[in-house]
Design a protein around this nucleic acid. Sequence first.
DNA 1: CTGCACCATGAAACGGCTTTCAAGCGGCGC
DNA 2: GCGCCGCTTGAAAGCCGTTTCATGGTGCAG
Lengths: 332, 332
Amino acid sequence: MALPRAPRLDEVARLAGVSAATVSRYLNNPGMVAAATARRIQQAVEETGYLPNLNAGALASSRSRLIAVLVPEIAQSIFNDTVEAMIEELAADGSSVMLALTGADNRLLDQQINAALSRRVDAIILTGILTDADARRRLREQPATVIETWALPDDPIDVAIGFSHRAVGHEIAQFLRSRGYRQPHLVVPRSPRAQERASGFIERWTTEGGSAPSQIDVPVPSHFGQGRLAFRGMADLATPPDVVVCGSDWIAQGLIVEAQCAGVRVPDQLAVIGFGNLRLAGDMRPTITSVDIDGRHIAREAIRVLKARAAGDPPRPAAIDVHFRVIARESA
Amino acid sequence: MALPRAPRLDEVARLAGVSAATVSRYLNNPGMVAAATARRIQQAVEETGYLPNLNAGALASSRSRLIAVLVPEIAQSIFNDTVEAMIEELAADGSSVMLALTGADNRLLDQQINAALSRRVDAIILTGILTDADARRRLREQPATVIETWALPDDPIDVAIGFSHRAVGHEIAQFLRSRGYRQPHLVVPRSPRAQERASGFIERWTTEGGSAPSQIDVPVPSHFGQGRLAFRGMADLATPPDVVVCGSDWIAQGLIVEAQCAGVRVPDQLAVIGFGNLRLAGDMRPTITSVDIDGRHIAREAIRVLKARAAGDPPRPAAIDVHFRVIARESA
DNA sequence: CTGCACCATGAAACGGCTTTCAAGCGGCGC
DNA sequence: GCGCCGCTTGAAAGCCGTTTCATGGTGCAG
């Protein structure tokens, strides 16, 4: 196991018969060097197996090509599709992702922001993270681009890419009314986003003349087991619902399983709608009506912003609405 | 939005009335400086809001405090618990994680290894990734610690932390025999690990006098929908099974749902066992018998190895067996 | 009191790349 | 034939820490 020191830029340069500066230019901007020189350098790179030291590069250029992605957790997260798309798109663009977990309660947010800033990341992408006034101020007062995703705050820290959770609530209310449901029951995770969707739903539902829905709150992160519990909890309701609006597809799935075990047919006796349009929504039996969020779209918009900034665009706050779609399936 | 340049080490030093070297020592090894000096430095750090530039630090010390974690994907991954534990434990230890996705088919493995090496990561942790001879050679010929997890290869690249998938197969066979099942059917994802478990199962099952099980292979990543399909596929079998051995809890869950829809009672008419012991296994109705892997244990062992190496331990290959446990529940 | 060991600290030399500045060179318009 | 322009390239000055080596001072044994 011989471990010869990794080759350096100047060694490649010597081999190619040019200066280190030229090799650097070739690597970062191939068009800048003459074609013949480029060929010689490329050959030297291959011959030595040279891999640039990105730490040195980051130090010299104050551009780390490292993006911090902060999420509460990944074991059971509705954001995983978005995060996966983000990492893939960034990798294709030549950046790497530093993934940091802030915990469901955001306990580690400050610490992780510091870690990201210490690494001098080019950008911090927040997904599904609530930031208090203090954190927002800190994030505003630093040079990296900050992208909030999955929501559209009134006062974005920098750039926000997401959708209106309130509008989702409206749309679900609209959808269920159009299908003729009368008595909705809400199962709402204790997250600001989910609460906002619920509030939007109630707003529209009652405006349209519906009677106030019943509601139960559940802990985050939401998961299958909560759906089961939520169904059992419904036994206590004064007026039995004809449709359950679930804060996530997992909850919807658990609720359907429990209903079926109790002999309640879905959707004939009880309709169910989820949120997130996870793969299982289309796979479940019955298939689950849900709300689709295009994570890849969010990811691509984020990259677009980052590229624009890297190209010198003035950092000007923006809110990008990526919308959402109710996907009607069997369950509602 | 004023963006004054980030404070530097020497500014903190001047404010504290010491040299930059001393501040550096205090930050990396507080015990090295006198108590009174430490207090002054700490105060200066707080006053300036100093955050060390880890790129510069990495360059100077050739220690990046950055660990690359490579996984095939995260949207639907049985490794997420392990990865989450890994990131949390590493963060607690002061390192950050660069998460890279290699794709279900490992297509991006080479590219991601290069990205990690370019960042001069302290270690590369592979989870659920198959490496061909070429990749293994490359990984061996570089200075970073390489940790393979979730498996115990015969010839670890460097350190392996995992369990024997073959032994899992043995254990499941043993377990099902002891419960009196006679006719198993295997639903096996097309991943080397899953195939190895299946092979171990068959080995033990037939050795103990059981008749050869039927088997169907399914694509990776495995998910709920495949369980449903797998159940339907069972209609064609010559001899109907009395227990289905699934390659993941998701498959098991999908299979149970489909069985119930078909009027087949689980486990009375058909037993099911999963793998991974995801949270939903305990939440499903009926609860799913599964095989538990302690992801956090794997993560902690990995940290232990990294710390030992950082402390100067000679890099000597090792295979650490973290074992596994069959969790008996209602479904089998 | 001397000498020695040890602790706390500072000065300065890197670490490997980027980028500014300047210069060489060939070509083109006049 | 001259001057200017633009394209390539090189030299060298950073970027911001870490670490080695050296030094001054302190305490303790003899």
